[in-house]
């Protein structure tokens, strides 16, 4: 019974959904079985694998570029107070702008295609990651910094051997959250800036003959992949060298 509990709400939703779909007037809204058939149809036509790969490809690039640039930048800004004071107002100004507001500009700069979508994902992850890395450095306990200095560590070594590991638990949380955001943004970007991927599938299925079974199939795939990505990031937090940072 206990093992079934996590599935109970999903099961209830499926039942309600099934019943509701059979009471509607328009007949456009698909029931769960039709969605399953839609998924199988996409699988058979080879579109499912193609679109999933396309979306993951864009997220991988945009997110990875953001991680390798934002984390070092954020750590340095947190460390050199002057840099932070110079750049922080700009970061705070840019952060409230939804990544989606950048869609027209990214198409203007990069044209319709992968690069535009990757740019949007990059933006969506870069700003919060930079801010998080900056904060994480500021929260490093001063005793640990002093201990590092006492043992004669140079500044670069202090950054790598004390500040980075001390900030890592907080950084991992930020990485997890921003990967979630990146996955949200890729769908939106694909609806407008490209013609492949799960976001494109959803828009295309509606436009090309109101195939709402495929629309919902796309949504289900997005949910499942997002869940898998998040579970993967959660595993990182269980590492012994990181666990100390999350309380007990």
């Amino acid at each position: 019974m206990k093992r079934l509990l996590p599935f109970s709400a999903t099961a209830a939703l499926l039942i309600v959904w099934f019943l509701a779909a059979h009471r509607q007037v328009s007949g456009l809204f698909p029931d769960p079985l039709q969605v399953l058939k839609g998924l199988l149809e996409l699988l058979r036509r080879g579109l499912l694998a193609k679109y999933v790969v396309a979306s993951l490809f864009r997220v991988t690039w945009g997110y990875s570029l953001a991680v390798v640039t934002a984390i070092p930048l954020g750590l340095l800004l947190g460390w050199y107070k002057r840099g932070e004071r110079a750049l922080n107002p700009l970061l705070q100004l840019l952060r409230p702008i939804s990544p989606l507001a950048w869609i027209p500009i990214s198409i203007l700069w990069f044209g319709v295609g992968d690069v535009a979508a990757i740019f949007l994902i990059f933006l969506a992850s870069f700003l919060p990651l930079t801010a998080a890395a900056m904060n994480a450095v500021r929260n490093v306990p001063p005793t640990l910094l002093r201990a590092g200095r006492n043992f004669g560590l140079s500044n670069p070594r202090l950054l790598v051997d004390v500040i980075l590991p001390a900030a890592l638990p907080q950084l991992i949380v930020a990485l997890r959250i921003s990967l979630g955001v990146a996955w949200l943004v890729v769908v939106a970007a694909e609806m407008i800036a490209v013609n492949s991927g799960l976001g494109f599938l959803i828009v295309d299925a509606r436009n090309a003959g109101n195939r709402y079974d495929l629309v919902v199939a796309g949504m289900v795939m997005i949910g499942l992949i997002g869940l898998v990505l998040d579970l993967g990031m959660q595993q990182l937090e269980k590492m012994k060298a990181l666990k100390w940072g999350y309380g007990s």
Binding site: P141, R146, A147, N150, G152, V162, P165, A241, W244
Partner: peptide, 16 residues
């Protein structure tokens, strides 16, 4: 200076 080491109340150990 590493020739003279400061010991804090237990909070000084590196938890990672």
């Amino acid at each position: 200076d590493p020739r003279r080491i400061f010991v804090f109340q237990e909070r000084g150990v590196f938890p990672w």
